[in-house]
Nucleic acid binder design. Structure first.
Lengths: 340, 340
DNA sequence: CTGAAAGCGCTTACAG
DNA sequence: CTGAAAGCGCTTACAG
């Protein structure tokens, strides 16, 4: 049988309450007593049962997910994954709320974060922009001892904040390698599409992509970035103009959203399939594009994994328990038509 | 506050014990009583607290992992991942034992499975061969109500057995697509390496690879499979002979283990880097081969994910709780030098 | 077929 | 600074 607090108390010659005090590093215990208890713990190889502790504490976790509103399919997927864990969370004394904030609206995001009441919120997971008002709001949460996890897009590192998402520079490099490998000996221009260069994830992907193309494929040239605010309509319009202006385009890399616009332009273009196309995030639309050969590869991050990882990280911080190494690394996934 | 069994008992006008009987579908309760309790549960929106239930039951999980012994790096990685969860398992009333069995030795495997005592074993995860003696031993475990998970290589579907691993046909198709895409317009022969065609995962990968090459790349021809018993030495010897016999080899696909032998041959061969090489499983050795450009792509499965998934599935079967959809799908991961 | 009481391994006021 | 007792939300003999 595994030793319990009872066994530790008996072995140390103290009461349950004192064992508890030592276990939880509560103040007001004499050094000698602490030593006695710790000796007993070591001697018995005592390990605390966290479920029992949580039951006694009536510990309940109340987490807030703050994510962008709008038509972005990836964010819809993220929301669906949050809803999925919500269904099972009640059985684990966990309550999850979702707050949606207009895309690209840092003020609204900061206001939403400020409105979270520390008494009813034990942790926050947020898809953050890099704006100062947002960073300040996050800092205030941390001051109130509310653990924060940032999702999808990294933020300047800060105490009490953990990033859960892919390494976007490496993701860009991966896209670059796929583009170069798939083009083989062909030479020509590459179209670069992004949502906005104020989004850190897009900037990082761009860096990575450029690095690889410049160093390893000098028969390929990247055109200046086309920004679309992640809007399919804008993608369509600007991409059409760009394709018309150049005759030697061989590849397209979309590092942002708005894939529906991209797909529409390429499907309409009779010569569309001659391009190598790499984009991000597996969704209903990009899946079909892979199927039909309109897209050649998708770089993906697993939204479900990110949601569950965020929850595990927040809980571990609250319970002061260690995390399982490796489980929380979000992988840069590559999808071709065959491995979806 | 969330309703508890107390609330249900009061609302239904019965005792705690009766609520418990209904909750756990234990026999010996009148239909009318069951109905009363179920009405109360529905009215209150009662959800059972699983941790509390496990505490009261003194439920302890004792799991056995049965894996192949030997020099296979992937299996070493798998073992390391099991050791990693072991470290944290004590805090969750979980005990994990590892049993190692000589590779390719179905009799020893079956004997090990038969030796597992149902009284001290609440679930089994096994890397199984497809031999009848093994299938029979697994069937006996299921008869004793011990849930079984098969890892890495699928087995003929059976009640009470869940497969945790990748779809190996799709993995083969993915390898084929990478090979074809990376070779571009080049034509020639492809070397196929496998451990043994009695391993279901290797057979399935072969099928998938062939499908894609035959249907989409008729400038490429696959040579007859070279079997190596997953032994680097045999890989080296047979591959050298094969490379010497053909002048127009453009690609190599290793669907099995023994990558060290493959790497050695290619590194020694001055012309080695002209081949496109696709292999399986990220390990210390294949990582380096990707880095140096000896390998072009690796198809990978996450051993850590498989271990944790196996545990969640076994626990869910024991607790009769539902699984989180999506979390248990093992992905076919593609690695290039840039996304490791 | 049903219920009262004790217990699982912790934590929490409260008393001293 | 320390301890006795009650309680968290369940389950389990045992009695009737």
């Amino acid at each position: 049988m595994r030793p319990t607090v009872q066994d530790v108390a008996r072995q140390a010659g103290v009461s349950l309450a004192t064992v508890d005090r030592v276990l939880n590093r509560r103040p007001g215990v004499r050094k000698v007593t602490i030593a006695k208890v710790e000796t007993a713990i070591a001697a018995l190889g005592y390990i605390r049962d966290i479920s029992a502790a949580n039951l006694a504490k009536q510990q309940a976790y109340r987490f807030a997910f703050v994510i962008p509103d709008g038509s972005n399919s990836f964010m819809h997927g993220l929301e669906a994954e949050i809803e999925a864990v919500k269904l099972h969370s009640a059985a684990n004394r966990t309550e999850i709320s979702i707050y949606k904030v207009p895309t690209f609206d840092s003020l609204a995001l900061a206001a939403t974060l400020d409105r979270l009441d520390p008494r009813h919120c034990s942790g926050v997971a947020v898809v953050a922009t890099e704006d100062v008002v947002v960073q300040d709001a996050l800092a205030r949460l941390c001051q109130n001892n509310i653990p924060v996890v940032t999702l999808v897009s990294d933020t300047p590192a800060r105490q009490g904040q953990t990033y859960v998402g892919i390494d976007n520079v490496a993701a860009g490099r991966t896209a670059g390698r796929l583009m170069g490998s798939f083009l083989g000996a062909r030479s020509g221009k590459i179209v670069l599409l992004a949502g906005s260069m104020v989004l850190r994830d897009h900037v990082e992907r761009h860096m990575g992509f450029d690095q690889v193309i410049i160093s390893d494929y000098n028969q390929l040239q990247c055109l200046p970035i086309i920004e679309s605010m992640d809007d399919s309509g804008i993608v369509k319009q600007r991409l059409r103009r760009c394709l018309a202006a150049h005759t030697d385009i061989v590849g397209i890399y979309n590092m942002g959203a708005g894939n529906r616009g991209l797909i529409e332009v390429l499907s309409a273009d009779s010569a569309g399939n001659k391009h190598v196309v790499v984009a991000h995030e597996l969704t209903e639309h990009t899946r079909r594009a892979l199927n039909t050969g309109t897209f050649d590869a998708i770089i993906h991050q697993d939204a479900g994994h990110e949601v569950r990882s965020a929850l595990r990280i927040l809980k571990a911080q609250i319970d002061k328990t260690p995390l399982l190494a490796g489980q929380e690394t979000i992988r840069i996934e590559i999808y071709l038509n065959e491995n979806m």
